[in-house]
Design a protein around this nucleic acid. Structure first.
Length: 156
DNA sequence: GCCAACGTTGGC
DNA sequence: GCCAACGTTGGC
């Protein structure tokens, strides 16, 4: 099993939105970065765990989700009316892929980015590296556990 | 809203 | 294949 962190701008799609979806499942569409796509297309497997991250507005880890459908073409790339329309990809040779994720839990207290930087054991997290902007990124099992434990300790 | 850091595009 | 110009991301 692998562990991931996925970013979303809460104004665009928040963890509350995920929680309110039918079956609490949502396709992770709109990723238009090759490295992030490769992770989704090639490495994300059923049951993989995901840290849900809110970017830009009060950046923080806000909860967890899991992968419930492995990669398939992101059809929004072919929709001229979609914000993430990509005129250069065609249906015979899909360029962009997505997975479905399902809500697991929302932290009672989100963990803000500055707080993450202070937690021992997270120094090497991709998220915390300078200039890191990947919207889909790997997390180690150790990092994942540290964050879950930290979140749980905040709820006591 | 600003802007630094990245990623992509396209002329040559 | 280089690299300048442009567009985007995301912390602040």
């Amino acid at each position: 099993m692998k562990y991931w962190l996925m970013k979303s701008e809460p104004n665009d799609f928040s963890i509350e939105d995920l929680k309110n979806r039918p079956n609490q499942i949502e396709p992770w569409d709109g990723v238009r970065n090759y490295q992030a796509r490769n992770y989704m297309r090639d490495e994300m497997k059923l049951g993989d765990r995901v840290l849900f991250y809110h970017s830009r507005t009060n950046p923080s880890v806000v909860g967890t989700a899991k992968v419930v459908k492995e990669s398939y073409p992101d059809h929004t790339a072919w929709d001229p009316n979609d914000h993430h329309f990509d005129p250069k990809t065609d249906k015979d040779n899909p360029r962009w892929y997505m997975v479905d994720v399902q809500f697991e839990q929302e932290f009672v207290r989100p963990i803000p980015l500055p707080e993450l930087r202070k937690i021992a054991g997270l120094e090497k997290m991709v998220l915390l590296q300078k200039g890191s902007r990947l919207s889909v990124q790997p997390v180690t099992e150790g990092e994942f556990e540290i964050i879950l434990n930290y979140a749980a300790s905040q709820e006591a």
